[in-house]
């Protein structure tokens, strides 16, 4: 195999491995947060804080930054982290295609990222 093709193939496999790692880490971190929330709530039911049944992303971030790790916040944090995992995967793809200098697919994956960002902004707009 010519050297240039070999380098490109290795770079491509590295990008695939990194994308796979991002997904795996995302799933384990979010699953851990959800399990922690469920266990915490089962062991110490009195710590369940009735977050409004309809929290905003801002509420959640503020509660976590203030150190309020009650069961509901932990579960929501796990769910939101899981929802962000595929978005992190798209960001990894943009970087990976950039490393490969495949500008056409940097553009394609940027469009996907733009659509997802637009959806998050829309969600914040309708919810606050």
């Amino acid at each position: 195999m010519p050297e240039s093709i070999s380098i490109s193939y290795d770079a491509r496999h590295d990008a695939e491995c990194w994308t796979g790692r991002v997904l795996r880490i995302g799933v384990w971190v979010s699953a851990s947060l959800m399990i922690a929330g469920l266990l915490f709530g089962a062991i110490y039911p009195s710590t369940i804080v009735a977050l409004s049944s309809n929290p905003t992303l801002g509420n959640l971030v503020m509660r976590m930054l203030s150190g309020s790790f009650d069961p509901v916040t932990l579960m929501f944090a796990g769910l939101v982290f899981l929802m962000f995992t595929p978005i992190l995967r798209v960001i990894t793809a943009v970087i990976g295609f950039g490393v490969e200098r495949d500008w056409r697919f940097v553009f394609v994956s940027s469009i996907v990222l733009f659509l997802l960002s637009g959806e998050i902004v829309y969600s914040i707009f309708i919810k606050g």
Binding site: L38, T56, V72, L79, M83, F84, P86, L115
Partner: peptide, 26 residues
Amino acid sequence: GVTAAASAFIYFAHGHLNPFIASTAA
């Protein structure tokens, strides 16, 4: 995963995500 994430935030924003049900079932 990306397709599902695209609508997940909308359901979350409309308050349809119950943390107990979603965490346990997931």
